[in-house]
Amino acid sequence: MIAPNPSEKTFLVRIKRQDAESQPAYWQEFEVPVKPAQNIISVLQYIAANPTTTSGEDVEPVVWDSGCLEEVCGACTMVVDGQVRQSCSCLANEQLAKTGKDHIELEPMTKFPVVRDLFVDRQRMFDNLKKVKAWVPIDGTHDLGPGPKETPEQQEERYAYSRCMTCGCCLEACPQFTKDNTFVGAQAIAQALYFNQHETGKKLKGERLDELSGPGGVADCGNSQNCVKVCPKEIPLTQAIAKVGRQLTVHAVKNFFSAK
């Protein structure tokens, strides 16, 4: 974290804070000097080093989650002026120009329990990966030759899904995914497809589809298509949901006949 040197021109940042999950939320406002190519992380770093509100109150530094600052780790997702996104790739001057306001509002994601301030607990997303068995069931790490061949087209499709960084934007934007229901949402469904498409990954296709056919599965999708609009990696999430939907239909028919 770098504490910037003070400079002249400033803008305001309003931050929704919460001391712990059980505590009430409250807003605080900070004044931050304008710097070129300044992203939200630099803004938060400045506030951490200068934790004084516009009303002159010395407060505890704001807590947030971050990692790579290059939009590949997924850590720093938050709600910026009402829109969910990674805060590292959000440039303050562009954001101010976009909204036409003199301030930026930062809030934690609303679909996950708040740990503190802007830092939320997204464990549910990782648990869902366990649920849909998001892995290739290899025999072990011994040298058993190369993996299955695939065409460049197959690789391209899988690569798109492989870039999911578990950031949670799709779930924040989804009207069906709520804090207390069981819907797994676009992220886990797309990952199920990713592994169903792999030659060895397919071995668990049936188990994945069983998991997605019940409550909390694909049928809970309301088709609002919000997920694909907010995905920072432009993963074709609605296409994935549709494809898994078709796989489920085939799976159900197969189950029906094999049960006879």
Binding site: G145, E150, T151, Q155, S162, T200
Partner: peptide, 18 residues
């Protein structure tokens, strides 16, 4: 490389699938 390939890493491919 072979192991990662078996784990499903989407390595870029040639037209022959290598």
């Amino acid at each position: 490389i072979n192991l990662l390939d078996r784990m499903g890493v989407p390595f870029n491919r040639t037209s022959e699938g290598m």
